[in-house]
C-alpha cells in the first residue's frame, strides 16, 4: 500500500503544466481606451502611450521588407502623411512587430539606418520584437493604421486606404481612410468608418 502514498506525492509534486494557449490576437474595441504600451525606440529612448496623454496619436505598423509598405514609402506617400500630421502636432509612431530573424526585424542601430534610408518622418520608430503590442492591438498587416485621441481612446483601426494592392500607381486616386479618420476626429466629428479591413503583408510575429 505504500506505493499509493509515494506515487501520490510524485503526482501532486508534478508542476502545474498550463498548456500554451498560443499567442492570440486581441481585437481592441473602438471608442474604448487604447491598449497601454511602453516600447523602446531606435535611439535608446522609451515611449509609452501615457507619455502622449493630451495629444493625438497615430500608430503605423511597419515592415520595410514588405512590398505593401514599400508601395507607401517608395512613393513618398507615408513620409508625406507623417510630416503633414507631425506639423499639426499629431504624434506619429511607427511600430515594428517583426520577430528576430523575420522579415522587417532589425536591431536598433540597423533600424535607425533603415529609417534614414527611407526618410521616415515619424516621431519615433518603436521596436516590438516580442509582438506583444502588435497582438494587443490586433495588428494583422503592414501597413495597418490606428488613431488614438487625446483622451487615449481608440478611434480608428484598419487599412491606410481603399486600394488593396502593392502597385505604386494605386496611391493616386485612393481614398485614404487614415486621413478621413483623422480629419473627422480632429474636427470633433465621429469617425464615419472606424474599422476597415487592413491589407498588406502579415505581421511577422514569432
Amino acid at each position: 500500500m505504500r506505493v499509493f502514498a509515494a506515487l501520490l506525492v510524485l503526482g501532486l509534486a508534478a508542476p502545474q503544466l498550463a498548456p500554451d494557449l498560443g499567442a492570440q490576437l486581441q481585437d481592441p474595441e473602438i471608442r474604448a481606451p487604447a491598449p497601454a504600451f511602453t516600447l523602446p525606440d531606435t535611439e535608446g529612448g522609451e515611449h509609452s502611450l501615457t507619455d502622449y496623454a493630451g495629444e493625438w496619436v497615430v500608430l503605423e505598423w511597419l515592415n520595410y521588407g514588405c512590398p505593401f509598405v514599400q508601395k507607401h514609402y517608395g512613393s513618398g506617400n507615408m513620409q508625406k502623411l507623417q510630416a503633414e500630421y507631425g506639423q499639426k502636432g499629431v504624434i506619429w509612431l511607427s511600430v515594428v512587430s517583426s520577430a528576430p530573424g523575420e522579415q522587417g526585424y532589425y536591431v536598433a542601430s540597423e533600424m535607425a539606418a533603415m529609417n534614414e534610408a527611407n526618410g521616415n518622418q515619424a516621431e519615433a520608430v518603436l521596436l516590438d520584437p516580442e509582438g506583444n503590442v502588435g497582438r494587443a492591438y490586433g495588428a494583422r498587416t503592414t501597413p495597418q493604421m490606428y488613431v488614438i485621441d487625446p483622451e487615449g481612446t481608440l478611434l480608428y483601426n484598419g487599412a491606410i486606404d481603399d486600394r488593396p494592392s502593392s502597385r505604386l500607381s494605386d496611391i493616386d486616386g485612393a481614398h485614404n481612410y487614415l486621413v478621413q479618420a483623422l480629419s473627422e476626429a480632429m474636427a470633433g466629428n465621429p469617425v464615419s468608418q472606424p474599422t476597415t479591413q487592413p491589407y498588406g503583408c502579415s505581421v511577422k510575429y514569432n
Binding site: 512590398p67 514599400q70 517608395g74 534610408a117 502593392s166 502597385r167 505604386l168
Partner: peptide
Amino acid sequence: GLAGAPDLVS
C-alpha cells in the same frame, strides 16, 4: 528606397 532606383515595387 535609394535615389534613382526604378519603380520596381509595382
